[in-house]
């Protein structure tokens, strides 16, 4: 499925919605979206993942990049990841770097 990424700033919360397959060809667009976030004015990075169907190594790389770019003080949320994506985050240990929730309120 074609990959789409959209970003919305809500105060100090950056909301990023990912749709489709996040692989080597689509990861650069995701990284570009993360790059564009003003870290200094962002306290939470919220990734809406319910429509993300697949994540390859390249996708994980950008997630790690997002976490490291945000720094330890900011929280990274993964909202409603599908089973494959959640499973990959669990197996690779990335789950420890992210707050997983069904919904985001706040």
């Amino acid at each position: 499925m074609a990959f789409q990424v959209s970003t919305e700033m809500d105060g100090k919360v950056a909301k990023v919605t990912l749709v489709g397959d996040l692989d080597g060809s689509s990861a650069p667009a995701f990284k570009e979206a993360i790059d564009a976030i003003d870290t200094a004015n962002t306290e939470k990075l919220v990734l809406f993942l319910d429509k993300l169907e697949y994540m390859a190594s390249a996708g994980l790389r950008v997630l790690i990049f997002a976490k490291q770019k945000m720094g330890a003080a900011a929280d990274l949320y993964a909202i409603a990841p599908q089973e494959m994506v959640l499973d990959t985050m669990e197996k690779t240990g990335f789950i420890q770097s992210v707050i997983v929730a069904d919904t985001f309120e706040g």
Binding site: S57, L60, T88, K91, F94
Partner: peptide, 15 residues
């Protein structure tokens, strides 16, 4: 690695 087929064995072992 459970993620070997995705090429993420490095991450899985480090985790």
């Amino acid at each position: 690695a459970a993620t070997g087929k995705l090429g993420m064995q490095v991450d899985e072992l480090k985790a």
